[in-house]
C-alpha cells in the first residue's frame, strides 16, 4: 500500500465514518512492523516495543474516532503517537537502558539465512545499532526514518513536525555524528 494512497484514505474513511474494525486491521497490517521498529530502536527491548506498539494502535484508533479533524496523513499521525508513547514510557518508568541480548536480536531477524552469514549479519547489525544508540534521540530518529524506513524528506518533515529544510540540516548533522562515532570504533 503506497503511503497516503487512495486505498489508505478509503480505509481511514471506513474507520472514521463506520468505525470499521476490519479496515483498521488492514492499516495495522501495513504499519505494525514499521512502528515496532521505530519504537524498538528507542527502547531497545522487544517486549517493551511490543507493549508500546499495541498501545500506539489503540490510542490512534481512539484519536481517529474522537477527533473532528480530517486525518490528512495517517502515517505521520502513527509516528507522532509512537513518539509520544515512548516519551510517556520514559517519564513513567524512568529512563533505563536495556541492552538487548544477542539472542533477542537474533530472533528479530526474519530472513532464514545460513548460520555463518547470520552471525556476520548479526555482528554488523549489532555494531550499527550500538552506533545509533550513542546518538542524540533526534539524530537517531531522523536516521531511522530516512535510511531504515526510507521515508522522503517531505514525509519525515510531516512526522517530525518540522520544515523540510530543517530536516535536511538535521540529517546532515546526524550522519556526521554517526560517522564520527563509527570512526572512533
Amino acid at each position: 500500500m503506497k503511503r497516503a494512497s487512495l486505498k489508505e484514505k478509503f480505509l481511514i474513511f471506513k474507520v472514521k465514518q463506520n468505525k470499521d474494525a476490519e479496515a483498521y486491521g488492514m492499516l495495522y497490517d501495513y504499519y505494525v512492523e514499521r512502528i515496532f521498529r521505530f519504537i524498538f530502536f528507542k527502547v531497545s527491548s522487544s517486549e517493551i516495543a511490543e507493549d508500546l506498539t499495541s498501545e500506539v494502535f489503540l490510542k490512534t484508533w481512539e484519536y481517529i474516532n474522537r477527533t473532528t479533524e480530517k486525518i490528512g496523513n495517517f502515517n505521520a499521525l502513527l509516528y507522532r503517537v509512537a513518539r509520544n508513547a515512548v516519551i510517556d514510557h520514559y517519564r513513567s518508568k524512568g529512563r533505563t537502558i536495556v541492552n538487548i541480548t544477542d539472542e533477542e536480536l537474533f530472533e528479530q531477524i526474519a530472513d532464514k539465512r545460513d548460520l555463518e552469514k547470520e552471525a556476520d549479519t548479526q555482528l554488523e547489525i549489532e555494531n550499527v545499532r550500538n552506533h545509533l544508540k550513542k546518538l542524540k534521540d533526534i539524530y537517531q530518529e531522523v536516521i531511522t526514518l530516512k535510511y531504515i524506513e526510507e521515508f522522503s524528506i517531505a514525509e519525515i518533515a510531516e512526522i517530525m513536525e518540522k520544515k523540510k529544510g530543517a530536516v535536511r540540516v538535521l540529517l546532515h548533522r546526524a550522519l556526521k555524528a554517526l560517522k564520527e562515532i563509527a570512526g572512533e570504533e
Binding site: 505494525v32 512492523e33 515496532f36 521498529r37 524498538f40 530502536f41 522487544s46 516495543a49 511490543e50 506498539t53 536480536l105 530472533e107 528479530q108 531477524i109 526474519a110 530472513d111 549479519t121 554488523e124 547489525i125 555494531n127 550499527v128 545499532r129 552506533h131 545509533l132 536516521i143 531511522t144 535510511y147 531504515i148 524506513e149 526510507e150 550522519l175 554517526l178 560517522k179 563509527a182
Partner: peptide, 17 residues
C-alpha cells in the same frame, strides 16, 4: 558513509515476532 548507510538499511530486517 556508504558502508554505514548499507548497514543501516540492514536494520530493516528487524521485525516483530
Amino acid at each position: 558513509m556508504n558502508n554505514i548507510i548499507e548497514q543501516l538499511k540492514e536494520l530493516k530486517n528487524i521485525k516483530p515476532r
